[in-house]
């Protein structure tokens, strides 16, 4: 890295900040270098500081792929829980994201809430900057009003190539409990039977969902699943299990039994109990007799 190049980069950033419009904005997206990322690589947190109540954000995080390589994108502790586009590398050098915050995020109670974090390894030494682009925020209101998002690039002075070491991950808990819902709506997949599910894992993040089906008492193999998930039809003797798996392997399995099957089991159990009582009474009567 040459010092003149770094100074020129700083001057450019300063000029950009000075020339930016002075009007109000709905929120500020801040890029923060995480100091706790340990040796090797760079971890950057994207945090939102709302100036007005906001409830939806989208945008891109751009980086120089010649100097940085994405190792991991994590939204486990994100303030956004409804992702229409979970943060992921769209193309080399661009991470895109879009999602909403149910109930909105108000300025007084949200100080630097995390949107997502990215762990980079460094390919080579040099000065570079990360910057956000195409940012959109929607005010928390009934009319989806767009507003301005302020941001500033993050300057990085990469001293040497380093592969990002696996970070220390303290995750004591499985993904949070969740329920699976059966939906039939003309607005979704032509009124097909659809299973809907979602959960979160604050420790390491949910990395996958898997599903298996039981028919006539026999479970199928686990296969990848994504909500909303179309199913072929609710059979009388079928049941489903949805497994959420986090990054360290903890699992939570939610079961879904179709209402008809549940009713059948209830009736069956009730009938069985009655038959059992009748048989016991008959045996007693026979003994007395």
């Amino acid at each position: 890295m040459t010092s003149s190049r770094f100074i020129a980069l700083c001057a450019g950033v300063l000029l950009g900040v000075l020339l930016s419009p002075l009007r109000g904005h709905a929120a500020e997206l801040i890029l923060v270098r995480d100091g706790s990322s340990g040796s090797g690589g760079v971890t950057v947190r994207v945090v939102v500081k709302p100036e007005e109540p906001v409830n939806a954000l989208s945008g891109e995080l751009r980086y120089d792929p010649a100097l940085l390589k994405v190792e991991d994108v994590n939204a486990a502790n994100s303030v956004i829980s409804l992702w229409t586009r979970a943060p992921a590398e769209n193309s080399e050098g661009v991470i895109v994201f879009a999602g909403a915050i149910p109930g909105g995020l108000t300025p007084a109670v949200a100080v630097n809430a995390e949107v997502f974090r990215v762990r980079f390894s460094t390919r080579s030494a040099g000065a570079t900057s990360l910057r956000m682009s195409d940012l959109v925020a929607y005010l928390h209101g009934p009319n989806a009003q767009r507003d301005v998002v302020r941001t500033a690039p993050l300057l990085l002075d990469l001293t040497r190539p380093a592969s990002a070491s696996e970070p220390l991950m303290l995750d004591f808990s499985p993904p949070e409990p969740f329920v699976v819902r059966l939906v039939k709506s003309v607005e979704l997949m032509n009124a097909a039977s659809v299973l809907v599910f979602q959960t979160a894992d604050k420790g390491s993040g949910v990395v996958s969902y898997q599903v298996r089906e039981r028919r006539f008492g026999i479970w199928s193999d686990w296969r990848e699943a994504q909500s909303p998930m179309r199913i072929s039809g609710i059979h009388l003797l079928s049941a489903y299990e949805i497994k959420a798996v986090d990054a360290v392997g903890h699992e939570y399995i939610a079961r879904f039994t179709p209402p008809r099957l549940e009713a059948l089991w209830t009736i069956g159990a009730s009938l069985g109990e009655k038959i059992w009582h009748i048989m016991r009474s008959a045996v007693r009567w026979l003994r007395v007799w």
């Binding site: 409830n55 229409t84 149910p102 929607y138 009319n143």
Partner: peptide, 18 residues
């Protein structure tokens, strides 16, 4: 919002009435 497509604006309205 009846603008002919489902975008983040529609998701924002949903989040408001959540």
């Amino acid at each position: 919002n009846c603008d002919g497509s489902v975008t983040l604006a529609d998701v924002s309205i949903l989040a408001f009435f959540w």
